[in-house]
């Protein structure tokens, strides 16, 4: 936005997030708008996320096969790909796609609403625009990204199953058994929990950038752009944190 330092931006974003927690859980609740945002943010992102997940699973399988074959460990491909997708690739790839699609659209939408005074108009129309626009969107991204990630995981694993069957034969039952036999709560739960934080990061950054955009149409573009950049970066940082924390908790 401005020529603000990194610390300024971080502080302002944290304050914005604090406002989300202060205002988000007090009435009145914008239920209809929240559901609509869930539909837009979650359901309408499914095709994109699904395609990405499918390709991710397929490519991981095909790429790992030559190396695994060198060690005579082709039977370990389902386990390896399964753990890779569920623990890391699913959440991070889905999160990044989500940041690109949803983070930018939220940044641009709120940014243009800000510059065309729609946010002010809401305020004078007896509506708290923060609740109506920000809280609903942040909640939607926070809750929808985990669902999207789970579906992307499943699609990716199915693609992996297809990839294995391109050069060899595995039954779906054996494939699923292979994955489940090596899977523990320590693999699934941290991976699911961290996607909530990814979703929150995408939502809060997109909303902050858009809500505080104020340089006319140029600011809208900047808002969309920096929303994607910052939220993608934040996803990686959170991922690193998640690895460290789950390690400390002894889940690794």
């Amino acid at each position: 936005m401005f020529e603000n330092s990194l610390l300024d931006e971080t502080g302002a974003t944290a304050q914005f997030a604090g406002r989300f927690f202060r205002e988000g859980f007090r009435p009145r609740y914008e239920v209809a708008e929240f559901l609509h945002q869930c539909y837009v943010v979650g359901y309408q992102s499914l095709p994109m996320v699904g395609i990405t997940g499918f390709i991710m699973g397929m490519v991981l399988t095909l790429q790992s096969r030559p190396t695994m074959a060198q060690f005579g460990a082709e039977s370990w491909i389902p386990t390896m790909v399964g753990l890779t997708i569920i623990r890391e690739m699913g959440p991070i790839i889905t999160g990044l796609i989500f940041a690109g699609k949803i983070g930018s659209s939220i940044g641009a939408e709120l940014g243009s609403m800000r510059v065309t005074e729609q946010i002010d108009a809401m305020e004078v129309s007896g509506t708290n625009p923060f609740k109506y626009l920000v809280v609903t969107r942040v909640l939607a991204t926070t809750l929808m990204l985990p669902v999207l990630t789970i579906l992307a995981d499943v699609i990716g694993l199915y693609a992996s199953y297809l990839g294995i069957n391109l050069k060899g034969v595995t039954t779906l039952a054996l494939f699923v058994n292979n994955i489940f036999s090596s899977l523990t709560f320590g693999d699934v739960l941290p991976a699911v929990i961290k996607t909530f934080f990814f979703g929150f990061a995408v939502g809060i950054i997109g909303c902050y950038k858009g809500y505080h955009s104020n340089k006319g149409t140029e600011g809208v573009g900047q808002a969309a752009n920096s929303a994607v950049v910052v939220s993608s970066l934040l996803i990686f940082v959170l991922d690193l944190l998640a690895v460290q924390i789950t390690g400390l908790l002894g889940f690794n």
Partner: peptide
Amino acid sequence: LGLFVLVGVAIL
């Protein structure tokens, strides 16, 4: 939306 969320949560 309900279907989408239900499927995801059910899988989990």
